[in-house]
Design a protein around this nucleic acid. Structure first.
Lengths: 215, 215
DNA sequence: TAGATTGTTAATCGATTAACAATC
DNA sequence: TAGATTGTTAATCGATTAACAATC
């Protein structure tokens, strides 16, 4: 029961943990029992010391000469991230992106279960998309507490992002995963995490521009 | 014609540039002519000094007391990122995510034009999705040079990610935007940028876990 | 002019990397 | 035992923030 230092875990570290997890699950599938940071660092193309530093935040302990027990390491990472037991989520906004996320398999293996979707379009309400019912947005207030859902995935058009977020908050959602390009204002106790394709594209575009036109 | 220091622009800076751009386009639409870093920093909830540092990399020059010319600033940011003239891209893998990206409007305004899609599924080949034709993957080698496409968007299943990336590279693609969770091996002159939903989810999940169970 | 804002130079902070003792 | 690997402590590097002179 290692007590983590409780505060100030770096964001980069948290972002790398799922990358290790993916490799670990892969080698577990191959029957590998233990693994060294050297091996992990090769797969991810980072320095071994960084891997050790990252893994340390989960409280896992390795053995010199041997490395880490794969099973134990997976367990520690999953616990640290909060992926050990599945969280339920609602998805609001069944457009292109919303539909795609409903069909995405990767969430389940990372402890996220989208239990239902919401929209304001009467043509969509009552239908079922990738096995999940689409409810009227009006039902949110009712269903969030009843189904004890804490996570809301926001995939509505930018124009109604803030308004929809407000409704999520009012319904009792604890964390909003925001796929719109809008900077939301939410109360300080509500977790807000924004996904930003434009930022990501900018990295790609800038590199490409620099390669073609170094100046 | 300010010459940027050419090397070592921080990644965080590049990722923030599109965020400024979004605000700037918004205020331009309202007829605003000039804007201060104070104003921008409020909209994005970052420090004003960071905004000035970020904008400086684009070579734009502001005026004390006034701020920056909105139009000029937009122009500089777009040029820096390489969004001034549109780049053509191919999308490979027309599953859930691929389909959603084909329907996403945001790319066009950020200088990315997806001109066609590719797949190996004969049921999809020959069809049209969100206005773009779906070709057989075999046509990639032929069409990349012919249409002078430099960017490839990879949305195939994880199992065939590396193989498909290899075909992109062989066809002459310069930059791969990888939406699979696979760490690709590509030649050093090929730009590779990986999108990772799991990393992003981990940030949200960890915060939620820490809020519920601080220890 | 007075004062708000830019842009530069220095200080702080955090993340990555290096060095090395401990250990199986 | 010898040697590979962990984990800790120190050094480096880069990004953010602070201070302040320059300027419109």
């Amino acid at each position: 029961m290692s007590k983590h230092p409780s505060r100030a875990i770096g964001l980069p570290t948290i972002q790398r943990l799922p990358l290790y997890l993916r490799i670990l699950r892969e080698v577990r599938g191959e029957g590998v029992q233990s693994i060294s940071t050297t091996r992990l660092s090769e797969a991810l193309q980072v320095q071994p010391i960084m891997v050790r530093k990252d893994l340390a935040v989960t409280g896992v302990v390795g053995r010199p000469r041997i490395g880490y027990q794969v099973e134990e390491l997976i367990d520690h990472i999953e616990r640290f991230i909060g992926w050990r037991d599945t969280s339920s989520a609602f998805l609001v906004g069944v457009g292109n992106l919303g539909t795609a996320l409903l069909g995405y398999r990767g969430f389940e293996e990372n402890g996220l279960h989208i239990v239902a979707a919401f929209d304001t379009d009467t043509k969509k309400i009552g239908s079922s998309i990738h096995g999940r019912s689409v409810f009227s947005l009006d039902r949110l207030t009712d269903l969030v507490p009843r189904m004890r859902v804490r996570i809301g995935i926001l995939t509505v058009p930018a124009a109604c992002a803030q308004e929809t977020a407000d409704r999520m908050v009012a319904a009792g959602i604890c964390a909003i995963w925001n796929f719109t390009p809008v900077f939301l204002e939410v109360p300080p106790d509500v977790i807000h995490h924004q996904e930003n394709l434009a930022s990501s594209l900018a990295v790609l575009s800038t590199r490409l521009r620099m390669q073609l036109d170094p100046a």
